[in-house]
Write a protein that binds this DNA or RNA. Structure first.
Length: 400
DNA sequence: TCTGGGGTCCTAGGACCC
DNA sequence: TCTGGGGTCCTAGGACCC
């Protein structure tokens, strides 16, 4: 029995959210993103898109496209609030909602729309109602699987409403460029083109023939892609939020550096704010990964797994600092433009109390020095770690 | 002034164990 | 001793998504 799955995608979400609280910006070219030396556009409203402004575009280029462009910094807390309010209303119509990101969700409508004589009419009315109530417009794709629904919602924006039945796949999806295939990105698409695959239809035929080169290019993904394109993809909605598996921060430096000492403060503040997030959510981690991006944009990483999962900033910082030294070592004086740190193998703090008792701080030689450093960070009381870390960073930046 | 930041998943080689 | 394998974990790198 086929399900009825919808993919609901908020249009130009961050920009729309800003227009709601700044009505004076409505209709003016607006983008959300960073404005610094390495700022990049995250979302542009439709007025800005007319000038060629688009997401992932460097902000200075966007400004060159449209000199009147207004660029606002992102305010994620506000967007989370707006997103919850919007999808909360969807839940009033349909309880089975799976969030896929801050601005999109999959919804199982089988139960409620299965016997409806005019499901598209119903969704069109819901879409208009949501627009009136929240100010946010969305595009909806409706199909028997999640992938088809996602492909559908991408077809028309803003306020699109597209149904893709299995019998429509050839007519609707086959003519589309391979670039539109969700799951095939900028690296794989050109390789497929080399194999004579220009459209989704071309890919469908190659997969149907079990073309060896295509299968090799796609690897394990080939069978998933074949399922998707033939209408057999995943159609199950998971309403529970999955446990987060890793947490990370990275920062493009204001100026390239070539020694770990020059990146010390950035690393320090990232570890302090990550470890306080871990502590707040009662999570511990075992694997620490440090990433550097060199001036040619190549990434280099080094990771280490500790025996006892932890969220202690002293331990995490010391490990990260050691990894950063080793990573710089390998770069042999090359310039570094970004430092990132990630913590993974994350689990609940409660689940590892037994191992905690086995913990031996003396394993960490330079711990005393680290304690001093953290003490220094903590001296200002009454503010949370994140604020403290940011203040330190700003102070440092101001001194340059 | 070229090119962000936060995630998930996959691959492939080596270590180690049975 | 001429050479098995399968399973799992760790590490480094990379593709993809929003």
């Amino acid at each position: 029995m086929s399900k009825i799955i919808a993919h609901i995608d908020l249009n130009a979400f961050f920009a729309s959210a800003e227009e709601i609280r700044h009505p004076e910006l409505q209709g003016k070219p607006l983008a959300i993103g960073g404005e610094g030396r390495s700022g990049i556009i995250s979302t542009a409203n439709y007025a800005a898109r007319k000038y060629g402004v688009h997401s992932a575009q460097p902000s200075f280029q966007a400004k060159a496209c449209c000199e009147d462009l207004i660029i606002l910094p992102p305010d994620f807390d506000y967007y989370v609030m707006m997103s919850r309010s919007f999808f909360g209303r969807i839940r009033e119509f349909f309880p089975l909602v799976e969030m896929a990101s801050i601005d999109e969700a999959y919804v199982d409508m089988t139960e409620r729309l299965g016997k409806n004589k005019d499901p598209l009419g119903f969704l069109r009315r819901m879409q208009n109602y949501l627009k009136e109530e929240t100010g946010l417009s969305c595009s909806i794709g409706i199909a028997p699987t999640k992938w088809l629904a996602k492909m559908g919602s991408d077809l028309k924006k803003p306020m699109g409403l597209t149904a893709i039945r299995r019998k429509d796949i050839e007519k609707i999806l086959y003519p589309l460029s391979i670039d539109n295939f969700w799951g095939i990105g900028k690296k794989t698409a050109p390789v497929l083109r080399q194999l004579g695959i220009q459209t989704i239809g071309d890919l469908a035929r190659k997969l149907e023939e079990n073309d060896a080169a295509t299968l090799k290019t796609l690897g394990k993904f080939a069978s998933t892609a074949k399922d998707w394109i033939e209408g057999r993809g995943n159609d199950s909605i998971c309403i529970e939020e999955a446990d987060q598996k890793s947490i990370s921060m990275s920062e493009t430096l204001r100026k390239n550096v070539s020694s770990p000492q020059e990146g010390e403060d950035v690393l320090k503040s990232m570890v302090v704010s990550l470890s306080s997030k871990l502590q707040e959510s009662h999570k511990v981690v075992s694997t620490i990964t440090l990433t550097l991006k060199d001036a040619e944009f190549r990434l280099h990483s080094k990771s280490f797994t500790v025996q006892t999962p932890t969220n202690k900033e002293q331990v995490l910082y010391l490990e990260a600092w050691k990894l950063m030294g080793e990573c710089f070592e390998r770069l042999k004086g090359k310039e570094v433009r970004l430092i990132g740190v990630a913590f993974s193998k994350m689990e609940d703090e409660a689940r590892q109390t037994v191992q905690m008792s086995l913990w031996n701080y003396e394993d960490y030689e330079a711990l005393d020095k680290t304690k001093l450093l953290i003490h220094d960070l903590n001296r200002k009381s009454g503010k949370n770690q994140f604020i403290r870390a940011r203040e330190i960073k700003e102070k440092k930046n101001g001194n340059r």
